[in-house]
Nucleic acid binder design. Structure first.
Lengths: 125, 125
DNA sequence: AAGGTCGGTATCCAGCTGGATACCAAGACC
DNA sequence: GGTCTTGGTATCCAGCTGGATACCGACCTT
């Protein structure tokens, strides 16, 4: 049932524009978390893999924030053993559309973005 | 030639979702600044009117950031007297589309957003 | 000469963000 | 009994954000 491909080993390795976008959704890592949940629920330890540079505290904070705002649900299964799953809510899923639009815009204007901020990589300022 | 309507007296008076959005573009005030520049160039003192709750320092910071990232241009006219105009660049203008998409999404899901964050109005967490 | 407008700067400071490090209890495994 | 995994929490701290307040020179009007 968990035949889904595992998450990539490190999201930062790919050309992942989200940390460089002039946009921001939620806190620093929220958009990357959403991206990880795109194809189904994931466990905390699964999320830690692609987000290895995010400390557990920061990841927990981000997930709590997303939960508080209704984008993500957190369910605890005690079936055979403890298992905590995070999943997108319908609201969270609907949010992916404008987020994708923003990412596409960024991809289209990537060169201009890099030119403008002459060398200085700063995500939000 | 300056027959454009003046900016509204206070952007915070309208139902302006941007400070409540779970998104953020640039720094705290950037998206509201962009909105003010939508229909043409504006002077610093013009911008101060609708953004009266933004201190001059913060407004300058926001404009400098937008300029640094290529979204806004700053031109000094010394014609008859000193005049500084801020205008959207093509890049900045193109950015309005995904921003508008995000705002429309927020408008459509406004109730859910308010329900989720049970009472707590926090723009980004 | 006095005051207003324009376009900001200077200084200070509280509070939040986010990183590092360490630690923890419950259950599974050896 | 010891260790591993899971899903976190506790504590500390540096640095950034953004707000308040005051001030500034150049120019224009009266």
């Amino acid at each position: 049932m968990t035949q889904r491909p595992p998450l990539p080993p490190d999201l930062f390795d790919e050309l992942c524009p989200s940390p460089l976008l002039p946009f921001r959704f939620g806190d620093k890592w929220a958009s990357m978390v959403l991206r990880c949940l795109d194809d189904g629920p994931r466990r905390y330890s699964e999320l830690r893999v692609p987000l290895s540079r995010v400390t557990p505290k920061a990841l927990t904070q981000s997930l709590r924030g997303l939960e508080r705002n209704g984008f993500v649900s957190r369910t605890v299964h005690a079936d055979p053993k403890l298992r905590v799953e995070y999943a997108l809510t319908p609201l969270g899923r609907s949010m992916l559309e404008p987020l994708a639009a923003a990412c596409q815009w960024a991809a289209e204007h990537w060169d201009e973005l890099l030119d403008a901020r002459e060398g200085g990589i700063s995500s939000i300022g």
